[in-house]
Design a protein around this nucleic acid. Structure first.
Length: 127
RNA sequence: CAAGUAAGGUAUGUGAUCGCGGCUGGCAGAACCGAAAGGGGCCAGGUGAGGAAAGUCCGGGCUCCACAGAGCAGGAUGCCGGAUAACGUCCGGCGGAGGCGACUUCAGGGACAGUGCAACAGAAAUAAACCGCCUGCUUUUGCAGGUAAGGGUGGAAAGGCAGUGUAAGAGACUACCGCCGUUCUGGUAACAGGACGGGUCCAUGUAAACCCCAUCCGGAGCAAGACCGAAUAGAAAACUAUGUGGCUGCUCGUCACGUUUUCAGGUGGGUCGCUUGAGGCUGCUGGCAACAGCAGUCCUGGAUAGAUGAUCACACACGACAUAACCCGGCUUAUCGCUUUGCUUGUUGU
RNA sequence: GGCUCCAUGGUCAAGCGGUCAAGACAUCGCCCUUUCACGGCGGUAACACGGGUUCGAUUCCCGUUGGAGUCA
């Protein structure tokens, strides 16, 4: 990932939980806090209640992949923590991707025009 | 062909694009982060989870601590022989139980070394006479004695069954079976078979109750441990301003604060431990087998918030259970299916 | 990743292998009260699951499942 690295320390997670803003939908919860750096830091948390190691690891990968492919759309300089909820354990990649985009829109950290433009260019790329 | 039984094998595949962790080679040896150690760039190649990686139930390697030797305590194991680094594992036997059979299954030492427990029911539970049967006395009926064949209770009531015998009975006596002892034969042994003797003589079960006997076990665990080392607590030495603050309003005095170096210490962090090993595969030899020996050949994850994913296409059986965290040998548990071989029983055909 | 421990009504909990598994709070009915509360009487309700040892298991043994604690 070009503009991002992962959030590692428990202290950082706690800071984001305590001082950041949160939005949630059916599958995910997203905490966001500005970090003052020139890059984003992404933390993913999946509770043991969601499933066994295979399920949890798979969800973690789906979230990371969804973020990676939409990385260009996000604003720089925020800490993001994504928490997976129990409902998310049977999700496909596209459901996760849509959920992340939706939450990013709620936080106003996603460039909406760019996304639509990207879709248009994707449609027009045959030219 | 059907039903069964035992032992194994395998664990979606192929292609394209994007992405991740090690490794090797090449190019840079710059920028950047960091006090340092160290990390870090680009390109190419190759590589990257399981049969249970799980549970952590056993055993071992490895590391540190302790240790003259021995014992106690505590724990584990428990038919016999073998395998193994070791084991509670495995293999082959023996005995009991189950199955027509192939085969399965068993914590399978000791109950006269001692102690404990055995509710309820039952006359009686480790100790014997309630009913019954028989004899005598009395003869309304009960009393005294004999008796464990029958009744009922219970998980368990003086070995079973048949006969002799008797007042009624009783291993009191006899045959067969069981049990105990001695002995012979076979077997390394558990044990099996036979012969002779004991009438079974103080009673049952429980040792996954305490216990006895035999064998084994020092403790902790890679967050072990080793090294490098900001910070911060500390020790010593040197230096400087004669500075700041307190005693005190001023002077003197005195106390605290400063900088550098060295030492000690070892936190955040980093490096090692870390993967070539009781290793896999093939063949030969020994062994019924577990396994062992020899020869050839192969190198196959090493992360540190933690790498195998996503999308598209095709195929079919439509994909279960499940993700290494120091490493091995087992056990247990979860699991969609597919498949191989041996054997048993039944039916049909030749 | 290693180690240690626990599981009994809705909740908190006692329980030598043996008769109907104590209690307390909760709630269901009745009584008391003008009514509510307090109080009194009675009821419902449980041994996490699967095997084994034993005549008999909540208890003993083994294995699962779930839940805690601890080591940086």
């Amino acid at each position: 990932m070009k503009y991002s690295e992962s959030l590692k320390k428990n202290r950082d997670f706690l800071t984001v939980y305590r001082k950041g803003a949160s939005f949630a939908n059916k599958y995910l919860v997203m905490y966001v806090r500005e970090n003052g750096l020139n890059k984003n830091r992404l933390g993913i948390s999946v509770s043991k209640k969601v499933g066994n190691s295979v399920v949890r690891h798979h969800l973690c990968r789906l979230v990371r992949e969804a973020y990676r492919l939409q990385e260009e759309l996000f604003h720089r300089g925020v800490d993001i923590v994504v928490v997976a909820r129990v409902n998310a354990k049977d999700c496909t990649y596209f459901e996760i991707e849509r959920a992340i985009y939706h939450l990013g829109k709620l936080h106003h950290i996603v460039e909406v025009e760019k996304k639509e433009k990207a879709n248009e260019t994707h449609n027009d790329c045959n030219d």
